[in-house]
Design a protein around this nucleic acid. Sequence first.
DNA 1: ACCCGCCGTGTAATCGATTTCGTAGCCCTC
DNA 2: GAGGGCTACGAAATCGATTACACGGCGGGT
Lengths: 333, 333
Amino acid sequence: MANIKDVAERAGVSVATVSRVLNGNSPVAETRERVLAAVKELGYRPNNVARALRTARTGTLGLVISDLTNPFFTELADAVEDAARGLGYSLVIGNAGERPAQQDDYIRTLLDRRIDGLLVSSAGTGSAMLGEVVASGTPLVLLDRTVPGIDAPCVRADGRAALTDLAAHLAALGRRRPAIIVAPAGTPTGDERLERFRTALADHGIALPDERVGAAPDLQPSGGRRVMRDFLDLPEPPDAVLATDNLMALGAMDELRARGLRVPDDVALVVYDDVPWFAHTDPPLTAIAQPTRDLGRAAVQTLLARIEGRPAPSVLLPAHLVPRRSCGEPPTP
Amino acid sequence: MANIKDVAERAGVSVATVSRVLNGNSPVAETRERVLAAVKELGYRPNNVARALRTARTGTLGLVISDLTNPFFTELADAVEDAARGLGYSLVIGNAGERPAQQDDYIRTLLDRRIDGLLVSSAGTGSAMLGEVVASGTPLVLLDRTVPGIDAPCVRADGRAALTDLAAHLAALGRRRPAIIVAPAGTPTGDERLERFRTALADHGIALPDERVGAAPDLQPSGGRRVMRDFLDLPEPPDAVLATDNLMALGAMDELRARGLRVPDDVALVVYDDVPWFAHTDPPLTAIAQPTRDLGRAAVQTLLARIEGRPAPSVLLPAHLVPRRSCGEPPTP
DNA sequence: ACCCGCCGTGTAATCGATTTCGTAGCCCTC
DNA sequence: GAGGGCTACGAAATCGATTACACGGCGGGT
């Protein structure tokens, strides 16, 4: 493949001139044309590796996602990729598969590749490697999940308003025994959703006792199904269930169907994350929709601010309730 | 961040020695220990950009996927990423979103970044840029979709046996008016699936007339729904429908439900691509399962063979029929 | 007419690693 | 004891770009 020296020779100028023409610094008519002609004839493309070495900028961002096969994160990754490309950056995606060790592995690799900035939706609770990222000076932005003790802005959705609306929605429909399926204990996101849901319900005089709070062992359908099974085996099973992740909701639906229970007649079901699929289930599921694409865009913008040394505060974007038929009310058209 | 020179100074040796110790070439006890100690104390990590410039190997593979939000491709990307990481490669994922122009854009960027090899599941029919990839000498492997005129091995699933089984399955269940929803006209994959399904049905004396062959405008739920609508408006609507992509199947289900038709009682439904979701629909959908993870693995292996100059033929892995309840038969346990 | 400054360009340093080549020291053999 | 082969290591070239610095020529101000 032709390099800058070949172009310089062909155009009869020095490599410095070629570089200047291509980078828009102090170009001039006659020489410029010769250089551009040579570039075209040789099909020259600058070597980004060499450029990155010299400029210490790779033009690449890293994204470590907790579980790429989870549609919520797929859409998030897609949005991030869109935004990054729009700003001239490439994106290296690493999939942690909810395994902290693999996440650390990936972060290490990305640092070695000298990416310009890093986005992480952290699997598990903490991570020694995240501390190293901060220490290394690589701009870092957390996505969707906060990590205690890490000094980096976090971009995520604020579900408080949506959970408040949901509590009102359920109360209005006469549901009195709500339940919630949360992520494995100790994750900040899960704890927050639980607390907020509980207080919002309390405002309507509805209790959320611990027996109707189920922590799934993992963010998978099987985990959701197991929790739902326990709920249904209670002496007083719930009449409404909120699954705080879309995959867990799938498992919950399976268990309901296996027992011949109907949604919403027997149990109302609400899912956190409004992935397209849930509009196609029977019945369509009421959902708490996070502004996924906006989150991705905001994350990239925040990261870019950090890269350029501008101040970059955390971002909270509101989630909102999307009522469908799974709680009993016909959708408001 | 510390560089190799810092390590050399601290250990009291030359940079060459440090490099040799770290790369396992001719190391020796005493010096070696000093170097390793210095590495540890400084927290030194080699700069991959510099290394790539010198060795002309980036340790990075590119993957351009036609639509990342399609669960089949998500799983494929995940499998590719797994396999690549297992072999010490990073993966840069580009999402073409079924837009050929964006695909070319991405391929261009990846070439500029001097990736070691490229995997492409091409959007649309052809692409000028793919020819350039071949011309540039960058190892290329096509994934899931062939591209006529491109001299590169292709890794994809062979659905012939599965379609033969499906025809027998439908015939045995007494379905006599099958239909098929295919991708936009002109895509090799779609044409092949159609032809094979038709001949397999013919073996059972069942016809697949053109009026029951519907080409969707795009690989989206809306496209599938539109085709299903046309089918149901026929004087003799089909009693079994095969959707050759999972998103189109979703749309088809929507239309059936909107009309109050039951699966499988009124219409049998079969989906190409066995994404996890379809085991959770009601009823669970009979599917033609492509060996997604094996495809990803095989693709990476094939690409690696090309990178190392070994012969690398195309790979065809068999898809198989997964009977569930959407055609009327209880699942065989 | 002289000097200053700017413009366009070339020369060479630089980024951080790998790798070739050269050399000093050592052991072994004849 | 001289020569040959190894080993361990350093000096320096190299990858392909960007960029600081130097320099020649030219225009304008006084």
